[in-house]
Computed example of a mutant assay.
Amino acid sequence: MHITRNRPDSRQGPAEHFTGTVWLDEIAAPDAPSRLRMFSVHFAPGGHTAWHRHPHGQVLHVTEGEGFVQREGGPVEPIRAGDTVWIEPGESHWHGAGPRTFMTHLAVVEAAEDGTTVDWGDLVDACTYPN
């Protein structure tokens, strides 16, 4: 067993992968052979990811606020505190806060054998949020 008491500093999501203000807090990145990675991601209103995909999929669990998620070719779906989203391996998608609210979610992924956890795509064009 290993208890982590000191965490890395919060870091701002880089502009090439995020629109608006987004902060990332690493929660878990155990040593090999584990490939688990977990982050708490804090989105300011209007903040969201670029299009991206994960080699082994992703679990999002919304801990506070409200936001949206969309898979490529699908509708923009609302998500709120308590919701859990499973994103299939290789499924292109984006997620983030709504235009008027903050949103925080836990993001859990499994790294590929080469250590890759995400393949980033283009920034999302202007979001059209459902009413």
Rank of each mutant, 00 (worst) to 15 (best):
V108F: 03
F18M: 07
Q58I: 02
T4Y: 13
G47E: 03
P130Y: 12
Q58F: 04
G46D: 11
G57D: 01
P8W: 06
N6S: 15
T49Y: 03
E64T: 11
V62Y: 03
D25C: 12
T49H: 07
L123M: 09
T4E: 14
W94M: 04
W120P: 10
P78I: 07
R53G: 01
T63A: 04
S40H: 09
P14A: 11
H61M: 03
A28Q: 10
M103G: 02
E91I: 02
A81Y: 01
G74P: 05
V109A: 02
F39W: 12
W120F: 15
P89L: 13
A32I: 10
Q70G: 00
T49R: 01
M38K: 01
S40G: 06
G46I: 05
P33G: 07
V109F: 04
V124T: 06
E16G: 13
E66W: 08
P33Q: 01
P99G: 10
G73C: 01
G115W: 12
A50F: 01
V41I: 08
W94Q: 07
W86V: 15
F68H: 13
R5C: 11
P8F: 05
P30I: 06
P75C: 08
G67D: 00
V59C: 01
D9H: 13
T4A: 14
D119P: 11
G115C: 10
G67F: 02
T117V: 15
L60Y: 02
F43H: 12
R35N: 08
M103I: 00
L24C: 06
P30M: 06
P14M: 11
D9W: 07
G47S: 09
W94E: 02
E77L: 02
I87K: 00
I27W: 09
P130C: 10
G57A: 05
Y129A: 13
R35M: 06
R37S: 10
M38I: 05
T21G: 12
R37A: 11
Q70I: 00
E66K: 13
G20F: 13
G65E: 01
G90R: 03
V85N: 03
V108E: 03
A111C: 12
A112F: 12
A81K: 09
E72I: 00
W94H: 03
P78F: 10
G13I: 04
F102N: 04
D125S: 08
T21I: 14
E66F: 05
D114W: 09
A111H: 09
W120I: 14
I87C: 00
R11L: 15
